[in-house]
């Protein structure tokens, strides 16, 4: 078992490396951040100065190595670069030092001037976690209840009603749901604050907005999973043996439904991160989702890299745990490895 976990951890490191490489390359393709840090009509000298300062003038592979391992041991540390000044003569530009990912230093944010990128991300994460946890609980628990209700009484009015609701939930873009909620609960009824964060009240609408897609999807899958299982031979056998319906559901059906659901929940973490971008933008929630989109549009490479690293790390760890639980629930999978 421990060997298995170790191997999975090694794989996780590989995945994180893949993510880092991907985000590095992709951000490079999106353009030069220096021109976004200066007025649009800036002379070449100013742009070059910013590029040198943040190490953006170096060849790509040097940038990547510095990104991963920092300055120490290379000739980069404390470097000063001389460049042509527009008025003639030379300009001395100090290069900002880098510690590298291995020391937890992703560099300084280009947007939040002078602030360490990882710090900016970590500062924001608790707010996202709060929102995602609320949305996750809302989605998972309600979906179990709805899914069970549907599966136990298939083709009834209740079943149909919940299914249509679930489908409508899926068919409404979350930005619309969010805007409608604000209109109803903040403007018309005046019950909840329209935006911002701080109190529990602020959490209600964003959590519903963020969780609704997962809720709809999970309800559907719990229902179909339960229906599948209820038709399996062993459940029929259990029924035939005269076990009460509730016992059948609790002992056999739920268990076998839960196994694939656990994987789904793991994936939901990713869905929630994606949804958080939109939800946090609408409700002005100061979390990582909003940070990521703001940082990408501003080409804040260090913060994007730090945020993606962090999100990926969490995602990989969550799914590692999910896989372990999955293997533990369903020994066939473990044997299969």
């Amino acid at each position: 078992m421990w060997r298995y976990i170790l191997r999975r951890l090694a794989q996780a490191v590989l995945v994180i490396f893949g993510v880092l490489l991907l985000v590095f390359v992709i951000m490079q393709l999106t353009g030069d951040p220096a021109s976004l840090m200066l007025p649009p009509d800036s002379p070449a000298e100013d742009i070059q100065r910013v590029r040198i300062m943040y190490g953006l003038d170096r060849p790509l592979y040097v940038q990547f190595v510095r990104f991963l391992f920092g300055d120490i041991g290379t000739r980069e540390a404390g470097r000063t670069v001389r460049t042509f000044a527009s008025g003639g003569g030379w300009l001395e530009v100090p290069v900002k030092p880098r510690g590298g990912v291995i020391r937890g230093d992703f560099g300084e944010s280009l947007r939040y001037r002078e602030q360490p990128a990882l710090g900016v991300v970590l500062e924001r994460f608790p707010r996202s976690l709060e929102l995602m946890a609320a949305a996750f609980l809302y989605a998972v628990l309600l979906s179990l209840v709805f899914g069970l209700l549907c599966a136990l009484r298939p083709a009834t009015l209740l079943d149909q009603g919940i299914r249509v609701l679930a489908i409508l939930g899926q068919s409404m873009p979350s930005f619309w749901l969010g805007l409608l909620l604000i209109l109803v609960f903040a403007v018309w009824l005046g019950w909840l604050p329209a935006m911002g964060s701080g109190t529990w009240w602020h959490l209600v609408m964003p959590a519903i907005t963020l969780g609704s897609l997962s809720l709809a999807r999970n309800t559907r899958l719990v229902r179909s999973g339960m229906l599948d299982v209820l038709n399996e031979d062993y459940v029929r056998t259990a029924r035939a043996k005269g076990l009460t319906e509730r016992l059948v559901v609790a002992k056999h059906a739920l268990k076998n439904t839960a196994i694939p659901l656990v994987t789904l929940w793991g994936l939901d973490v990713g869905v929630l991160f994606g949804g958080a971008v939109i939800t946090e933008s609408i409700f002005a929630w100061p979390g990582t989702g909003r940070l990521v989109i703001e940082s990408v549009t501003r080409r804040d490479f260090p913060v994007v890299q730090a945020a993606v690293f962090f999100i990926a790390l969490i995602f990989v760890l969550v799914n590692l745990v999910v896989d372990l639980v999955y293997g533990w629930l369903d020994p066939r999978v473990r044997v299969g490895r």
Binding site: I16, G18, V19, L22, G270, V277, V292, I293, V296, V308
Partner: peptide, 15 residues
């Protein structure tokens, strides 16, 4: 698949 899943979709879209 893990890399793909761990990589925020929105970022890919923007890129």
């Amino acid at each position: 698949a893990d890399v793909q899943l761990a990589f925020p979709f929105i970022l890919l879209a923007i890129a």
